[in-house]
Amino acid sequence: MIYIEQVTKRYDGKTVLEVPQWRASEGEIIGLVGSNGAGKTTFLRLLLDLIEPDTGEIQIDGKAISGSDWKQFTGSYLDQRFLIDYLSGDEFLDFIRTIYGLSRAEAEQALTPYRTFLPTNGDANKYLRDLSTGNAKKVGITAAMFVSPRLLILDEPFANLDPPSQLRLKQLLRDLHAATGATMLISSHDLVHVTDLCDRITLIDHGKVVTDAATSDETLEELRTFFGEVPDTAAPDEAAPDSTA
């Protein structure tokens, strides 16, 4: 499905991403993890042809991404630049529907599972710029998912969402995968969600893929060790809230 060969990206002479080879097979759910500035978003932006690699080749479905065939079956949401903020949530989803050639009836049906995830009725008519970050993000993620893409690319989808919405999103991703077998590439800082959802983890550090392996029972611990997460050993009196404050 995705083929990356000898790709490098440099900014001001500094290499920010260097991927000798990376593949994604049809139907895989891949978690992309790494510290801030590791190169995850650059990786996704390269895949979506939003930035140009300095060297190398990227193909989706056997075709170079400089063509636009892959866009017909790819849903994506990276950040607020994927939202048109002077439209309401409903207007934005209606616009996305036309891009992917869905009729109103088809779109209505496709949106049904997302109704419990989307902002409530009161917010549906507000312009996206007037919504909270989390609610606007829900609209953006829904826009990427409801068109039943064969390839789904999401950057930090769980960040800024409240806990129930995170769980709901996880379920929606699972349902989408079960229904369509879509290939998913999801970057996240939330190691629990990623290991829970993805069947493969790609760890990026300083612009290089350092680990790329199937998710197993030990993956979460390995990732925690990599990120230097220490067990909670703080003394009780230090951890307790200050009741006199």
């Binding site: 042809d49 630049r81 994927f82």
Partner: peptide, 13 residues
């Protein structure tokens, strides 16, 4: 410019 990325990453030729 605020959302050009979103347009070009989608099926807008």
């Amino acid at each position: 410019s605020n959302y050009m990325e979103g347009l070009l990453a989608r099926a807008v030729d």
